[in-house]
């Protein structure tokens, strides 16, 4: 009876319009399953057995990507309830806690972000220990380094959004560093040497690297909006683009690394 229902679904026009191949039970249909699916075709059709051993890859790159997707989904849900304005930001978080049934999206988003940082570091450690950054994968390692930095920046920009004490002071500590950028920051070495004729300073509290980051002299509403836009749009777009490049290059550079 059940088998009959399943069979009639599989033979329906709708099913066969989506899946162009039969059930992946033999070699031909298994190859088709990978090749005819836009998501699965990130994979090659066949891989070296030792390349996909869990003790070789630790699965950390894949988990990082999965966490990126989990962060995107939970992040979009959080955006429904959150307004990046000083007056509302904190109370929106409180409201999320108080009024949402089974509300664990903020928890998933926050712990997922922490987990993603750890998994991306461990992925880097694995790639390093197996020497997989060596030719021909040099450039993909560089892409990975940028992705590593973007992951931390994603987490850093998200840290401000709850607008509680933890948030603004962590970002204050972090943005103090921008102030110390050599030449470009107010408190950085050499910035007071940069002067227009007549002794007019170029680097002022209103024109230095910290001001660029925060949109103000201290962490305030401009910084909240900047970090929100960076966190929700700019950095995720950049990361998603580079992830695509990263995956594409894995294939182009010969797949998962192995002994030559």
């Amino acid at each position: 009876m059940l088998q009959g229902v399943i069979n009639s679904i599989r033979e329906s026009q709708v099913w066969s319009s989506i899946f162009r191949h039969g059930i992946p039970r033999d070699r031909r249909t298994r190859v088709m399953a990978i090749m005819s699916n836009v998501f699965l075709h990130l994979h090659p059709v066949a891989v070296r057995k030792s390349g996909i051993r869990l003790s070789f890859t630790w699965c950390m790159g894949g988990l990082t990507f999965f966490l990126f997707i989990a962060e995107t989904i939970s992040g979009v849900l959080l955006m429904f309830y959150y307004r990046p304005v000083v007056e509302y930001a904190y109370s929106d978080i409180i409201g999320m806690r108080a009024h949402l049934t089974l509300g664990i999206m903020r928890e998933i988003h926050r712990w997922g972000a922490h987990a993603m940082i750890i998994s991306v570091w461990l992925h880097m450690m694995r790639v390093f220990l197996t020497g997989s950054y060596k030719p021909p994968r040099e450039f993909n390692w560089v892409v990975g380094v940028i992705l590593l930095v973007l992951t931390m920046l994603l987490s850093f920009t998200g840290y401000l959004l709850p607008w509680d004490q933890l948030a603004i002071w962590a970002i204050t500590v972090g943005s103090k560093m921008a102030e110390a950028t050599p030449f470009a920051g107010m408190a950085g070495p050499g910035s007071n040497l940069l002067q227009l004729p007549g002794g007019i300073p170029i680097v002022t509290p209103y024109s230095d690297a910290k001001f660029l980051l925060l949109g103000g002299e201290s962490v305030g509403e401009a910084a909240l909006l900047r970090f929100y836009v960076l966190h929700c749009i700019a950095i995720p777009l950049g990361a998603a683009t580079l992830i695509a490049v990263h995956f594409w290059r894995i294939r182009k550079d010969g797949g998962i690394s192995g002994p030559m």
Binding site: P24, R30, I34, G258, P259
Partner: peptide, 17 residues
């Protein structure tokens, strides 16, 4: 080496996915 099995390929479906 542990990793040395160049001839031994498996299909991504089902082993990897």
């Amino acid at each position: 080496l542990i990793e040395e099995d160049r001839e031994d390929k498996v299909l991504c479906w089902p082993d990897l996915v």
